[in-house]
Design a protein around this nucleic acid. Structure first.
Length: 736
DNA sequence: GACATATCTAAAGCC
DNA sequence: TAGATATGTC
């Protein structure tokens, strides 16, 4: 048992407590992964538990892989154990049991792009061209419902029969029908349907309940309702459930994470033991203290305080820049200054609040020839050409996939436009067939234009040919064949632009990805390959060995650590963002994000802000972030700069707005949000305007307010037009 | 049906 | 400001 000696007493206590519910409150940098992996090793080595009987779920592939690697290192050799993400665990269940839900065994997984395309086609068919209702709008509601296990009918019942909910109901149920028809599930479905299987098939549930004698859940603070239910159902029989998390690092509530899951674990699971891991092995004492001085402003926290035996270290650096370019310049300069022979560029990270901030840093870094890497933004697999080829492969695997077909039917150009597609869809609907089936009908193809019919015929031939042979061919062969025979490669080659060249390169890179997979698994089937890439994510792409400064959002940095960390944009309105005030405890979530950002740093931490910032084409004076003001002043180095810039700041009113209370309703909303730090109803802003008032709109010109009804302001403009404008959004200003 | 031009809108993103 | 999408023109 000497491998356990590396653990501190609390970690050891957690690792040795195997029976019954266990909550491990693992503060930032407390080396929870060691604790978990040792616990697994202990179960296997000392308690005689078979790896097969243990389930460990994580949120990211990366976390799952790391855990597996470390367990295998402790045990020695490969282990047959479910260390999986929530989604892949559910996928495994569904591959075996999806039939009872009426799904085909080889259903496909739709990613957000496919979801959008699906909703778009529904919206189009329903003839909804109200701009208010975008596919994204419906999808966020649908996703919300699925996380709470609310089906379309329940949604309707819950929301009454107002026209809006009826509309959402219609789209939601059409979306569900479409997925089912295409034999597809979206990410939310994976969880939802796994739970459904458990609910509807007692034998299936029992099979997994019996099997998984021990269950572990990582990042428990980020679980949502349906994930909670999944875990809870599985744990019911043996009740040996161990969850690890940190309520201070819950930063995904906006995406459905339910912080109550961790706060109320002890209520949910009777006789739960709680172990707190409070020793931090990552950061210097100063960094830890600074992070703590911020997070302690949150209410509703589990009581814990991190400590470290590390030295104080340097103070936190603070720089108030003139503008965002000066800010980026400073960061690049500091990286140059700190970079020495024993430091790699990959020791530095710039963690910002929004992806839009990355550009100025990219510019500043390349000016100094500092290598960098931007994470986030477009996923590799989201690039158009890669997605197109994936769509072809999906069609080969699942000919019923209309969404995939629609994506590539005119890529390369086959002379098939919107009108033709409409016709085909209508026909498919009448016949109850998939689009590909319709296109296989000679009569239908003949009725198309000469160009279209030739192109379509060839496309259908290629796809069906590969579909028939898919089990005899290697994935890379299928890929190569599709690339050439669909004419896709030729299209790019003929294009002869730099852009097309880049796309061809990406497609070659994708091929080497396929080769890599085949190297690991000689028997890799198309279905397996599609499955693996469907569940990949961008952070999984982060390569710690690449010698480059890392640029990413604070969100994606969770779970990572760097010797040197920069947190730019410490300004009210940017961080915390204005939207933080839309939600009840939005500000607290932002503060947790700040805490996550600060605790990524091992040795040194820089905070910066800009006195003036251009966002969305508008330049504004800024005010330092309230989080900055919350940091213990004596932990901050940089007073000189702080003092120097103070004059400029004091030219403004203390709330960040120069002059009087603003008249522009949008600024009033921001102003009010600042004043109260509470959720301010846009109606309150509208109330500032009254009937008869003269107003100006930058686009529509001057006009007179006709009436104010809740959040809607009706204005008659001087050109005679009458427009309804939403308070808080309309750039109206009052005229004297 | 393809391409050019106008218009709109704006966080975070795990799987 | 910039990108994505809607609309208009040939």
């Amino acid at each position: 048992m000497d491998y356990l000696d590396k653990l501190n007493p609390q970690q050891k206590e957690a690792a040795l407590h195997t029976e019954g519910p266990l909550l491990i409150l693992a503060g930032a940098g407390s080396d929870k992964t060691s604790t978990m992996t040792h616990r697994i090793a202990y179960l296997i080595k000392e308690k005689g538990v078979r790896p097969y009987e243990i389930l460990a779920v994580t949120f990211t592939n990366k976390a799952a892989k790391e855990m597996r690697d470390r367990v295998e290192a402790l045990i020695g050799g490969n282990i047959n154990m479910w260390i999986l993400t929530f989604h892949s665990a559910c996928l495994r269940v569904l591959r075996k049991h999806a039939e009872i839900l009426g799904y085909d065994r080889d259903f496909v997984v739709y990613d957000p792009t496919d979801q959008k395309a699906a909703v778009k086609s529904i919206v189009k068919e329903m003839d909804l061209n109200d701009k208010k209702y975008t596919p994204a709008y419906f999808l966020s509601i649908i996703s919300d419902c699925k996380e709470k296990q609310v089906d379309p009918e329940e949604f309707l019942a819950l929301n009454g029969g107002d026209p809006k909910s009826v509309l959402i109901y219609k789209v939601y149920s059409a979306y569900e029908a479409l997925l089912k028809k295409n034999n597809a599930m979206d990410f939310d479905d994976l969880l939802l349907n796994a739970v459904r299987v458990f609910e509807q098939d007692e034998a299936a549930l029992l099979e997994y309940q019996e099997r998984f004698r021990y269950i572990m859940v990582d990042e428990y603070q980020d679980t949502n309702q349906i994930q909670y239910k999944f875990v809870r159902m599985l744990a019911e029989r043996h009740n040996n459930i161990c969850v690890v998390g940190d309520d201070d690092q819950c930063i995904y509530q906006w995406r459905g994470a339910d912080i109550r899951n961790i706060l109320e674990f002890e209520k949910d699971f009777k006789n739960a033991k709680v172990v707190k891991l409070e020793q931090n092995y990552r950061s210097t004492a100063n960094i830890l203290a600074a992070a703590h001085s911020v997070i302690e402003n949150n209410r509703d926290r589990k009581d814990k305080k991190l400590w470290t035996s590390a030295e104080d270290g340097s103070k936190i650096a603070y720089y108030r820049a003139d503008d965002e370019r000066d800010e980026a310049r400073y960061v690049a300069q500091e990286i140059d200054r700190m970079k020495s022979s024993d430091r790699k560029y990959s020791d530095f990270a710039v963690l910002y609040r929004t992806n839009a901030q990355s550009r100025t840093f990219e510019e500043a870094l390349s000016r100094r020839d500092i290598p960098y890497r931007v994470l986030g933004g477009l996923r590799y697999y989201d690039r158009k050409e890669v997605k197109d080829l994936i769509s072809y492969m999906r069609l080969v695997q699942n000919p019923a996939d209309d969404i995939a077909l629609l994506r590539v039917i005119n890529e390369p150009k086959r002379g098939v436009g919107a009108k033709t597609i409409e016709k085909l869809q209508a026909l498919a609907k009448v016949r109850g067939e998939s689009l590909l089936q319709v296109l296989a009908d000679e009569e239908v193809v003949d009725s198309l234009s000469a160009k279209a019919s030739a192109g379509i015929r060839e496309m259908v031939r290629v796809i069906t040919e590969y579909a028939a042979e898919k089990d005899n061919l290697r994935v890379s062969d299928i890929y190569d064949g599709l690339l050439v025979k669909t004419g896709y490669l030729k299209m790019l080659e003929d294009n002869n632009t730099l852009e097309a060249e880049g796309r061809i390169e990406n497609l070659m890179e994708f091929k080497s990805v396929i080769y890599d997979y085949e190297k690991d698994d000689m028997q890799l089937s198309l279905a397996e390959f599609m499955e693996r890439i469907a569940l990949l994510a961008e952070v999984d792409n982060h390569d710690e060995n690449e010698n480059a400064v890392v640029l990413m959002t604070m969100h994606s940095a969770k779970g990572l650590e760097f010797p040197f960390v920069f947190l730019p944009g410490m300004e009210d309105g940017l961080f915390p963002g204005w939207r933080a005030f839309d939600r009840e405890d939005g500000l607290e979530e932002e503060r947790r994000l700040c805490y996550v950002g600060m605790t990524r740093a091992k040795e040194r931490l820089w905070l910066t802000s800009a006195n003036m910032r251009t966002l969305y084409g508008k330049t504004d004076l800024t005010r330092e972030s309230q989080f900055l003001r919350e940091v213990d002043k004596h932990l901050i180095d940089g007073d000189a700069i702080y003092e120097k810039k103070r004059d400029a700041r004091e030219m403004m009113s203390p709330d960040g707005f120069s002059g009087e209370k603003p008249f522009n309703p949008f600024d009033q909303l921001r102003y009010a949000k600042q004043q109260t730090h509470a959720n301010v109803n846009a109606a309150a802003v509208a109330a500032q305007l009254a009937e008869g008032m003269r107003v100006n709109h930058p686009k529509f010109g001057n006009g007179t307010v006709l009436n104010v009804n809740g959040k809607i302001i009706q204005v008659q403009f001087d050109d005679g037009s009458v427009k309804k404008l939403a308070a808080g959004m309309a750039p109206l200003s009052k005229l004297d």
